[in-house]
Write a protein that binds this DNA or RNA. Structure first.
Lengths: 351, 351
DNA sequence: TTGAAAGCGCTAACAT
DNA sequence: ATGTTAGCGCTTTCAA
């Protein structure tokens, strides 16, 4: 009933026979690394024949021999977060130019699952890894380092100086941009919804907040349980329930800022009239929210691209020294921030 | 300087030696299909030893032998479109239960690139494909069918009845939901921004619009060049420039609806006061836009999940008959639709 | 129920 | 510059 249609794949032997040379000559001619060892005329005939027969090297056979898959694993904490698609595009573009393919794995915010996912990726014999899931101390990363698997961290990095490559943002600097903007608008009581302190982003942004706002009140800093809307909502609710008045809040990322919107709406507060809100990431579509979010823009695509390039370099030369690339963020001012109300509404936030 | 750390992977031979049996026995014991051929006691010792040694079959070696990669290719038109992440999650969950891994490829709206991407995926020896990129007549799909590669279409399907599995939405029915809602609100002049007619979604939704609104005016139907915000903006601008008055527009998807927002804002019209807008997909975050989008909700996750399941079934039994699964959409009413202004503002849209 | 042996398609060391 | 040979690690007949 079903046509099998199985067009038998051409093997290297088919090409060899067609040209009248030995299989190994075909192999050499087709590999850029070894092409120089074969006569140009022969190489051309081989190229022609292999094109004509639609020959492509079997990844299993060559992988078995060479122990390279030309595949890298990419571990993402949450693919539903719109920051990641642009990052992934950057990664894929970088890999594609090196003839490499990404296997994307979703960690879904469950750190304990990371080990299993790593096993799965390693089981696929990936040549290296790009991890967007790193915690400040991270068992998965440690394991990779111990096993000598090439790794590049992206967005998040480890605590302290470690010999591992990473492409991150200047999180402190980015938060300073947001704080300075609010201060310039006249805000004096600014709260911070910090990201999880187990993550370098949460940690660094909190430090950046403290550094930028010397007068920061500890009571106005709340740590969110996760980078999610619900966690942002919960944190903001906690802030509103506290007795410290404030007129603005710096959220550690856009999703948390969205959660702030929810909490604010629930108690009938208006953003930015009652409370100004800033985010971090400038993820796609935040310019369309009500109100459009003032946020710190990071170079999503560039970040992915650079991480991909760095990993490719590590694969090319296994002794490449690790590097840390820090990308500069910028502030995008939109409708979620405004000068505090003159009416002394400042105190209104305390209840 | 760099610790090689290369922990030699355990091979099947290591396990065999540890247990004192032949490698082939280990192979049989570890494969659920053939496990029954080996004595239970031996099987247990093999399982224990392989666990102890951290043995996992080398995918290259077994793939070379069995011609199966336990990998499937997933072709997505645009990963930046937030509909896809939930769909991908569904697909991955379905594959994971079958021990399969997805390789996601981004087609980036360039149909001519699809062939190359297909080659790359096939070169990776994927066992099957899930295509979200199908056009009503699609060279890539034809090629897969001709070559006997198992394929499941998702979201979009081919023109006419074809022997190929697909998981799609009831696009006609979905649009009818939107039209009926607008009519119930009192709208009489309703426009449609159709999706590309080369895609089954664009085509079916347009048909659905025509079917639901017998009095539809051809001058109030504009085909967008792509499913994108800019295309939606352009189409809406064209509609506004026409002389036909209308009070509502049914966009063929959410991105097009967003483009409508832009066009409306540019000419100083307010949604929904001047013009009501509906979308399609209910992609993440459209509930947060200004105004929150009234749209047709599709079962993103379920769609992915079902497609994955169907493909797994095709891989398990190559002679499985093809099926088409049609998922039911529902309407989500939000702030972008309202009754038309009583003020006879109807005509206002014409200039 | 288990072992022996062959071979999947390719590449790399060695030989010429 | 090209051919010979061996073998990567696994699965699968075939034999016992």
């Amino acid at each position: 009933m079903i046509k099998p249609g199985k067009t038998k794949k051409a093997t290297i032997l088919d090409v060899a026979k067609a040209v009248g040379v030995h299989a190994s000559t075909v192999s050499r001619a087709l590999n850029p690394q070894t092409q120089h060892m074969v006569a140009e005329a022969v190489a051309e005939r081989i190229a022609a024949a292999s094109r004509r027969l639609g020959y492509t090297a079997d990844v299993f056979a060559s992988g078995l021999r060479t122990r390279r898959s030309n595949t890298v694993g990419v571990l993402i904490p949450d693919i539903m977060n719109p920051v990641f698609p642009p990052i992934l595009r950057g990664i894929e573009d970088a890999l594609a130019t090196a003839g490499c393919t990404a296997i994307i794995a979703n960690a879904e915010g469950e750190p304990q699952r990371h080990g299993t996912i790593l096993d799965r990726l390693l089981g696929r014999r990936v040549d290296g890894l790009i991890l967007a899931t790193a915690q400040r101390r991270d068992a998965v990363v440690e394991r990779c380092m111990a096993e000598g698997v090439p790794v590049v961290l992206i967005n998040r990095t480890l605590a302290g100086k470690r010999p591992i490559s990473a492409v991150v943002n200047d999180d402190e600097g980015g938060i300073k941009l947001a704080v300075d903007h609010l201060v310039a608008q006249g805000h004096r009581h600014i709260a911070h919804i910090a990201g999880p302190q187990a993550l370098s982003t949460g940690y660094a942004r909190r430090s950046g907040f403290l550094a930028a706002l010397k007068t920061a009140d500890p009571a106005l800093i709340v740590e969110a349980a996760a980078y999610s809307e619900t966690a942002g909502d919960a944190a903001m609710t906690k802030l509103l329930a506290g007795k410290m008045p404030f007129t603005a809040v710096v959220a550690a990322n856009d999703l948390l800022a969205l959660g702030c919107y929810d909490a604010l709406a629930r108690v009938g507060f208006h953003c930015p009239r009652d409370i100004s809100v800033t985010g971090f990431n400038d993820m796609p579509f935040v310019d369309r929210f009500a109100p459009p979010l003032t946020t710190v823009r990071i170079q999503h695509y560039e970040m992915g691209r650079r991480a991909g390039d760095v990993l490719m370099e590590h694969l090319r030369r296994r002794d490449t020294a690790s590097v840390t690339i820090r990308l500069e963020p910028s502030l995008v001012v939109r409708g979620s921030t405004a000068p505090p109300a003159a009416s002394g509404r400042t105190g209104s936030a305390s209840r």
